[in-house]
Amino acid sequence: MAQARTSGGDRTKVIAGIAVVAVLAVAVIGYVVFQQMKPSTSTADGIPLAPADHVISAPAVRDGNTVLVGKDTATVTVDVYEDFLCPICGTFEKTYGTDIKKAVEDGKVKVRYHILPMLNRLSKPEGYSTDSANAALCVADDGKFNAYHAALFAKQPEEGEAGYTKDQLIKLGKDVGVTSAGFEACVQNQTYKSQLDELMSKTSNDPVLKDPETGRFRGTPSVASGGKLIDLDNKNWLSDLTK
């Protein structure tokens, strides 16, 4: 009987082991299928253009290390601080992009975009934040910033994964209509890298943008106007500015 009990216990262990292996196999297969079905945001393919109705139709000019979008007659200027890799910035654009577009096109506000190289270490390889911010300034030199900005937020690379390559960023510039002979070199050589580094330093030390508890930059996205930080928990922040 003792021998029989031992034999039965061995069979139980074997059956349990087979069951565990089967469960693990199903899990692995499920993960592989999920990864194959998951849409890629950073492949060798080109970056898709954003829908036309997502693109602000207003002048956009590079102003040093920022880009100013809107009509000269607008009396309110909104400063938006973003990073093209920042997922919450993508959420901000999806949430408020339509309202911002309308306010700009109606001539109520101008938006000064501060595209920051903040999350460089969070792409693989590192550096996508600088590459994309620099490319956006290069595009702004040719007046095509709005479509470029919309496209990079419409389909963002995932934080912690590979960002778009310089070649992809160049192709997107051409797809939005950049024709400048120096554009490709501007992207490849990171023409505005030093200016972007200065922008990051200035932003990090701006008292308006610091968290009162930590004393550090609050991060992206941040929005300010008239020297005051905007509370983005207030969903009516933009309409409040234009009353």
Rank of each mutant, 00 (worst) to 15 (best):
A2L: 13
I18G: 01
A19H: 01
V20T: 05
V23G: 01
L24C: 12
V26H: 08
V33W: 05
Q36V: 05
P39G: 12
A44M: 09
A44G: 13
G46E: 11
I47A: 05
P48V: 13
D53F: 08
A58T: 04
P59M: 04
R62H: 10
T73W: 02
A74E: 08
T75A: 14
V76H: 02
D79E: 15
V80F: 05
D83S: 10
I88C: 05
F92G: 05
F92T: 06
K108R: 12
V109Q: 03
L119C: 03
R121E: 13
R121Q: 13
K124R: 12
E126S: 15
S129Y: 08
C138D: 10
A147W: 03
K155D: 14
E161G: 13
A162Y: 09
K166N: 11
K171Q: 14
G173F: 02
V176M: 01
V178P: 01
F183D: 04
E184R: 06
A185N: 13
C186H: 02
Q188I: 04
Q190F: 07
Q190G: 09
S194K: 15
L199Y: 11
T203C: 11
L209V: 09
R218N: 11
T220P: 09
V223P: 06
A224K: 06
G227W: 09
K228R: 03
K235I: 04
W237K: 07
T242H: 12
